[in-house]
Design a binder for these strands. Sequence first.
DNA 1: GCCAACGTTGGC
DNA 2: GCCAACGTTGGC
Length: 155
Amino acid sequence: MVKKKPSYWLMKSEPDAYSIETLEKEKETIWDGIRNYQARNFMRQMEIGDQAFFYHSNCKPPGIVGLMEIVGKNIIDPTQFDKNSKYYDSKSNKSNPRWDCVKVQFLIKSKEIISLQELRSLFNEEELLVVKKGNRLSILPVLEKSANLLISKFN
DNA sequence: GCCAACGTTGGC
DNA sequence: GCCAACGTTGGC
């Protein structure tokens, strides 16, 4: 059987909420709390075996800190039904859940953060969407070519 | 369907 | 804290 080439993604998280260090300890997690349709739809496009760069946002400095692998998909986000969660969504219902997510597994941590500033010196907006000013999407696709360059920067 | 008001993200 | 860049909501 021929194995499909993985696609690459970038997933943002504020390190105060969930960091690469936490993922390294826990080994895997479900990427819950996504409440943006475009970001959700990107997760639906992901396939098992795809890889995703872990991006620390809203911190100093922001940037790429590691790499993960997609190990599960179409997972109902449980926080949408949890009234105590900040991600509770009163408009979602269990017979037709609005929010689902993927499960990710820790692969590697970058020796040093690849800061947004450095990313801007390496890529233009087309080569890596996260360098676009004002880009608020928390999940983005990454071109294979850009992914290869990024991975080579990890050591 | 339009659009104003409002909310959120996230860099700086 | 400021603000740019959107996404969402709701009146009409």
